[in-house]
Amino acid sequence: MNQYDDLSEYLLRLGDSAVVQGQRLCEWCGRAPALEEEMALMNVGLDLFGQARNWLEFTAERLDDGRSADQLAFCRDERAYRNLLLVEQPNGDFAVTMLKQFFYDAWHYHVLTALKASSDKRVATIAAKALKEVTYHLRRSSDWVQRLGDGTEESHDRMVKALDVVWRFTVELMAGDEVENRLAAAGVIAAPELIAEQWLATVSQVLEQATLTVPPAAPSFYLSGREGMHTECLGVLLAEMQSLQRAYPDAVW
């Protein structure tokens, strides 16, 4: 169920997806296959946390219910989170991690490109800043998808398996809902169908270069991140991420 006005709901979706994707990337800290990769994964995570802060600060101002951006991130339960199901999925191996990242980056890139022209000035400002960073993210993840897909026999096999695991969660990237349709009609965001079309074009191009087959459109799913109906992995991720704030409420650095 949607609790807030359309724009605040949408801002939570953007902010929450960035927080959760960033948190998943942090799980690679100390475990990445190479030092350079570790730095890259953490850098991307850092960019996403910064973007999340910008979105959630704006949300907090709009909601004006006494909660700060930090409290929105650290004191909301799973059902109140509005992130994409894709980003909450476990990291799996490096193939799954990079494929998830690529699907998210391609979506993020097109979403932000459109938001740069938003009728809401604050949204346009935050998006313009984030887009510069996400362009680098997309360039890197497309590069990895190509290298792994069109790499060794093992890397190719792993990418095929990763595609099998991850693809079903792309259904949310391909569809909007009433909130998004209304915001699109008001010129605040792009029409969901337009993002879907652009996303599929980018993804098809990269997967083909990676010698991977683009699966048919994923069937709709009974869960919906937009409405706070998540897969079971989100609760575990939040429990770890929020443990300090839960144990020591209002603790500051």
């Binding site: 350079e36 990769e37 730095m39 890259a40 850098n43 991307v44 850092l46 960019d47 680098y136 360039r139 890197r140």
Partner: peptide
Amino acid sequence: RVSEFGSTACKAL
């Protein structure tokens, strides 16, 4: 280029 991302957000290696 060794890596698109370096020791800080603003640098590549």
